[in-house]
Simulated scan of single mutants.
Amino acid sequence: MAGVYDFTAKSLAGEDMALKRFEGQVLLIANTASACGFTPQYRGLEALHQALGPRGFSVLGFPCNQFGGQEPGDAKQIEEFCASNYAITFPMFAKIDVNGNNAHPLFNYLTNQKYGLLGRSIKWNFTKFLVDRSGKVVARHAPTAKPEALFREIEALL
């Protein structure tokens, strides 16, 4: 059976990045967008990444334009937005689909592991999946869940 670390995704720079490089870390994987009411969650995601990163934690951001067209930019625009507005240092990946026939295989896997309010489907931007050090998807959090509210749950896995 495939696990989180068996997937590859393109970085914002367009390079294939094997998720195997994150093996042994606790991960918070989120679909993101630059023009969403939840976009300020980038601050909380970056704060978690900074605070817990040295202990083996990483946030992985996957831009997605499937919800209200709220991620219309190309990779360069997304990178510039994240850097200039939120000083993002966690890995950001190329824009993907998270639902439907063209959904990225990683998100097919994540949504099969943990269902949400709408079953498998992701409801909106900033849905978050928490993955333990062994690569098991242990929780799924709705877009309304603030990253800072996940601190203790993440810390318990470290």
Rank of each mutant, 00 (worst) to 15 (best):
Q113E: 15
P143N: 01
R21Y: 00
L130V: 02
D132N: 15
K146T: 09
G73C: 04
Y42Q: 06
A83I: 12
F62A: 02
A156V: 07
E15N: 12
V137G: 05
S84H: 11
Q77I: 13
E23H: 06
A51Q: 11
G53T: 00
V26A: 06
M1E: 14
Q70T: 02
K20F: 08
E71H: 06
N85T: 10
V98N: 00
V137L: 00
A149M: 11
F7G: 12
G68E: 12
K95A: 04
F93V: 01
A94L: 03
S121L: 14
G37W: 11
A33S: 10
P105R: 08
R133W: 07
N99S: 05
G116D: 00
G73Y: 05
S11V: 09
L45V: 02
D74E: 07
E155L: 12
G14M: 08
E153R: 07
N102V: 09
E153N: 10
F67Q: 03
V137D: 01
V59Q: 04
A156Q: 12
E23K: 13
I154A: 09
G68D: 14
H49F: 08
F67K: 03
L130I: 10
A103V: 04
V59W: 01
K10D: 13
C36Q: 05
G56F: 04
I78G: 01
R120L: 09
